[in-house]
Design a protein around this nucleic acid. Structure first.
Lengths: 211, 211
DNA sequence: AATTATTTTAACCAGATGGTTAAAATAATT
DNA sequence: AATTATTTTAACCATCTGGTTAAAATAATT
């Protein structure tokens, strides 16, 4: 390998190890020694590449909170899909993300509550405008003939139903599945269908109410 | 005050302080000195009353995870309420609990994921049977003419919608409310009505589907 | 082969932290 | 007033932890 490739390679090994440890244990629970071990290097080299724990943590956090935000905004804004199609699409992809990153929800919840200011800072740095979200809400409200407020609650309900089963897994798995991990994974897979149906049905049920 | 009352009083002061600090910062983030300060005593006395940090933490955790479980099982099993009434009752009371204990959801999520074994241990010690929950599921399934599986997803959806807005508060508040705390509190209050409606409507919408 | 870059070794430091101890001080009981 | 129980003071300890350093060793470049 060339010198520059070696450098990038080591950097990546560290970042992957740091992600694994920080996501699982959080800033407070993670140890630099553990990250070094996980990366297969020593502590001196770890500090040589990334000066401090906080700096390394922030790099991981920024990437992971970015992943946490669904890359589905264009889809939710598209004119070619109905509301139902958008919901099915969103739920399936969002739950899939967490099936691939099962500890992402817990990590985000833990860290944003430890230091809520990081959230505001992330939005400023990433240049994310809340306009997109408000546009989605307005779009749903228009298409479904409901108030923006109600459309917003609907979105929060949908997102909640995708995220919570991952964050609350230890309890639900224990109470309802007697700790059977395989069964719980099946349950999570199933939810792609059930959550979307649940949301779509709720709108249908609302329509008869107001008729 | 009598000697025994003084003892109980100090004990309570410590437990209240410990709850405050542990719930906010978690086991890893909490400091014994901070708990002592919060209780208005010194570290020596803190250790005199509760031998170790872990022991003190476990006392708090057991109480709080107990609070986390809705004391609403009898209501959900009652024969005198319809499904709709049960949902409205449950959602209102559960959200109310979190309005009074805003950091309870984050605390529980943080700690059960840090040490999932505590959950199983709690269930053994508290003697909680999963039969109650399974009975509620069966009851819903019977009353609504849906499968137990579907009834279970419904319950998880309902619980998710109550809990997540508290655990994910920093993000939602930032993205949709520009950090306006008062507005977010109003939104949470509103949800008592909207979440219940959402769930009830979903069942209504499902009924037309199968007709 | 000589030079340069990357990594390891291993000792070390300072500060934080959980926990202890014994004596002094304060408050309650008799 | 004397005794007993509660709390403070304050020094102290061992361990952990983030972080540093300089020299030796290994690998890549020229």
């Amino acid at each position: 390998m060339t010198a520059k490739k070696i450098e990038k390679d080591t950097e990546n090994k560290i970042l992957e190890a740091a992600k694994k440890v920080f996501v699982l244990k959080g800033l407070d629970g993670a140890r630099m020694q553990e990250i070094a071990d996980e990366a297969g290097i020593n502590k001196a080299l770890l500090h040589y590449y990334f000066r401090s724990k906080d700096q390394l943590f922030m790099m991981i956090f920024k990437v992971e909170i970015g992943n946490f935000f669904p890359r589905l905004i264009p889809i939710l804004l598209s004119k070619e899909m109905t509301f139902d199609q958008k919901i099915y699409h969103f739920v399936e992809n969002y739950i899939d993300l967490f099936l691939k990153n099962p500890f992402l929800p817990t990590f985000i919840i833990r860290e944003i509550n430890r230091n809520p200011q990081m959230v505001a800072q992330f939005f400023i740095e990433a240049g994310i405008e809340s306009n997109n979200f408000k546009q989605i809400i307005a779009g749903f409200a228009g298409e479904l003939g409901i108030s923006p407020k109600e459309a917003f609650h609907l979105i929060i309900n949908t997102v909640s139903a995708c995220i919570f089963p991952f964050a609350g897994r230890p309890i639900i798995e224990q109470v309802f599945f007697d700790g059977n991990t395989a069964e719980y994974n099946h349950f999570l897979e199933e939810r792609k269908k059930f959550v979307a149906e649940f949301v779509v049905n709720s709108i249908k049920g609302r329509m008869i109410n107001t008729k």
